[in-house]
Amino acid sequence: MIAVIRYGAGNVRSVLSALGRLGVDGTLTADPDMIRSADRVIFPGVGEASSAMASLSASGLIDTIRSLRQPFLGICLGMQLMCAYSEEGNTECLGVIPSPVLRFPDGRGFKIPHMGWNTVSSLSGALFRDVKEDEYMYFVHSFYVPVSEYTSAVCSYDGLEFSAALVNDNFFLTQFHPEKSGDAGERVLKAFLEA
């Protein structure tokens, strides 16, 4: 069973649809027991960090998520929430990755949010098994995670390099939306389902 965590953050439907295109049923749930017993867990995310953390806390999911040992995929906000701390709403996050989440600096002449298709490079880890260097993925975000030893893909936005993906043991995290990244994104999802 693939559990897709329900916590009030948006576009879960596109994640379920993407799984459906790969012939897999995802189960949308906020039940800690169901999530713990799932074969794989997907943590989708479009939304704002502090309200998302409040919602996870209200559902009793914070410790559940931290303690998961099965393959776990966090997407966009679902990646940022796995970090230590986010500048969005000055929010303490889950801390699976000891990195901060920072706001793209204003006044550098580039547009925020970073929205659209951008290339990913310096790829490593199971998610990128079938992805070539410099393939395009779809991003929409105003906050970023700096490059660190946990970075498994790098993206560059007008000279600022940041983590397009992170990995720590069973936790696979992407800043981009594989469910919206066409054919390349589908290959990432497929690799996750087989990880």
């Binding site: 439907r13 649809s17 295109r21 779809y138 939306h177 919206k180 990244s181 589908e186």
Partner: peptide
């Protein structure tokens, strides 16, 4: 919208 979301993988 529902059928489009089921069928396509771009925004």
């Amino acid at each position: 919208v529902r059928s489009v979301s089921d069928r396509i993988s771009i925004p």
